[in-house]
Nucleic acid binder design. Structure first.
Length: 478
RNA sequence: CGCGGGGUAGAGAAAUGGCAUCUCGCAAGGCUCAUAACCUUGAGAUUGGCGGUUCGAAUCCGCCCCCCGCAACCA
């Protein structure tokens, strides 16, 4: 028995529930699910966490607008996230909500520790506050006295806050990031974070006096903790920081935080600093994926130009959506998506490529060999090349490799002409089809983290012992 | 002089000093096992612009133009 079984703790951001999930949320979460499945296949003890971030003034405002209590509102949206992941074949080990009692308890302990660290102090902050941003904005950013993004007039707010001495951590953070103690990828994001740190870190306010929908400071019930500070701590509370210390010890620190590139500063600067303050270990790696545009336009919750990933999943299937987002754009870079592009990938790569190869192969096995491939080679020949690419988060490259094999197989069939050979040399046909079946089995295994459904179908048919041509894996869509 | 990313056939990408490559689309041909699929061939690029280094530049250097993020408390 392997008592030193390697653990792998992977997280997504917890998503802010002021609106339902869009394709950008799905992107990060699909990638994390793929990695979780991959590491599980490699025999590791995986914990895959996602969830929802449910506090803050913006949510309270959205709830009011919807005529609901904040709790009703967040229950509803959080459920939409959970359901969306389900429909995309995403299977987290845990779905944390920041309104869970477990999280509330853990945050209280966390805040007490922060206070005890001596890194908190009281101060005053004055500025222009935009409710849409749920943030202070600079006067220089205003257009005609209005927030350019939300077209609303910010309020002048003077606040008494608790501050965190982020400035104390400038040097140590720069060192740890420089040395890859905290590995930040892609490289450009690391450079960005480092140059930001070198410009100098200022202390941050970690409490809000006017935000009712939040977790009160244990020592000052007139203030609630700043949502980001509390939200980041989900990575600890979800694995039992207070409720199950044994499990926490087992999985912490996180092996990989998957994030969108817009929140790297929170994850690469504030989060490690907070952990240093309470003397917990730091996450090992943080990977920031890029942004999607949709038909060249920025996705924006506030503007409302969103794609509901469940619409795509309903039409093309979860596997296709998973394949598409990971294949279409090199992971880490920005990219453009649209239903036309999805359709092109679906019909071209999945239906005509993998699906048709599977159809013609199984059909010939049924027709020429009576469904019998007794010596199907099931042990993986070379999982490594594709899986190494996936493991280094080069999903599109790994997939391109696999599709090269599909193209190669199609060429092989054309050159060997089994329909002619069947009249003269059945042994040769058998040899060819056994090879093709083995190759398909191999491909299915490689694809299993990305397209679990299709992968299972292929393997089930090939393993059945009496192979018949099945229904198309991916029926063409016009 | 705020920080960062980018500009290569109609579209999306690859090539980090040596014949500009791949996918989709387009055109022609082939095949018949297959989901109107698959295979072969072809057309299509002065690599954003100007200058420099070099035997040789998409690639290295300088200047310029254009696009996109971020710019501190916005998931």
């Amino acid at each position: 028995m392997d008592i030193e079984r390697k653990k792998f703790y992977i997280t997504t951001p917890i998503y802010y529930v002021n609106d339902k999930p869009h394709i950008g949320h799905a992107y990060t979460t699909i990638a994390a699910d793929v990695l979780a499945r991959l590491h599980r296949s490699l025999g590791e003890d995986v914990f895959f966490l996602t969830g929802t971030d449910e506090h803050g003034a913006k949510i309270a405002a959205s709830a009011e607008k919807a005529g609901k209590s904040p709790q009703e509102f967040v229950d509803e949206i959080s459920a939409k996230y959970s359901l969306t992941w389900d429909q995309l074949g995403i299977a987290p080990d845990k779905f944390i909500r920041t309104t869970d009692p477990e999280h509330l308890d853990a945050v209280k302990v966390f805040l007490e520790k922060l206070k005890a660290s001596g890194k908190l102090y009281e101060g005053e902050y004055e500025g222009l506050y935009c409710i849409g941003h749920e943030a202070f904005i600079k006067e220089s950013e205003l257009v005609n006295g209005l927030c350019p993004e939300h077209k609303t007039k910010p309020e002048l707010v003077k606040e008494q806050n608790w501050f965190f001495k982020l400035s104390d951590y400038q040097k140590i953070l720069a060192e740890k990031i420089e040395d890859d103690d905290i590995l930040i990828r892609p490289q450009t994001r690391k450079n960005e974070v480092l140059s930001f740190i070198r410009q100098g870190l200022e202390d941050i306010a970690i409490s809000r006096p006017n935000v009712k929908w939040g977790i009160p400071l244990p020592w000052d019930d007139k203030q609630t903790v700043y949502v980001w500070v509390e939200a980041l701590f989900n990575y600890c509370s979800a694995i039992g920081y207070v409720s199950d210390p044994e499990q926490f010890q087992k999985y912490w620190p996180a092996d990989l935080h998957m994030v969108g590139k817009e929140i790297i500063k929170f994850h690469c600067i504030i989060w490690p600093a907070l952990l240093l303050a309470i003397k917990e270990e730091l996450p090992k790696a943080i990977f920031a994926n890029g942004f999607f545009t949709i038909n060249g336009e920025k996705i924006s919750k506030t503007i409302g130009n969103v794609i509901d990933p469940t619409d795509w999943a309903a039409k093309y299937g979860a596997d296709a959506v998973r394949y598409f987002v990971l294949r279409e754009v090199p992971f880490g870079q920005d990219g453009d998506v649209s239903e036309d592009k999805l359709k092109a990938r679906y019909n071209g790569d999945l239906a005509n490529g993998l699906g048709n190869l599977f159809s013609r192969t199984t059909n010939m096995i049924e027709k020429y060999l009576d469904g019998d491939v007794e010596s199907l080679q099931k042990s993986p020949k070379d999982l490594n090349d594709a899986w190494e690419a996936f493991n280094s988060l080069n999903f599109s490259e790994g997939l391109a490799r696999i599709w090269e094999e599909i193209a190669w197989a199609n060429q092989l069939i054309d050159r060997a002409k089994p329909w002619d050979l069947a009249k003269t040399d059945l042994e040769k046909v058998k040899e060819l089809l056994v090879n093709l079946a083995s190759l398909l089995y191999d491909i299915a295994q490689k694809l299993s983290p990305i397209m679990p459904e299709a992968s299972n179908k292929i393997r089930q048919v090939l393993e059945s012992g009496d192979i018949k041509k099945p229904e198309p894996l991916f029926a063409k869509i016009d």
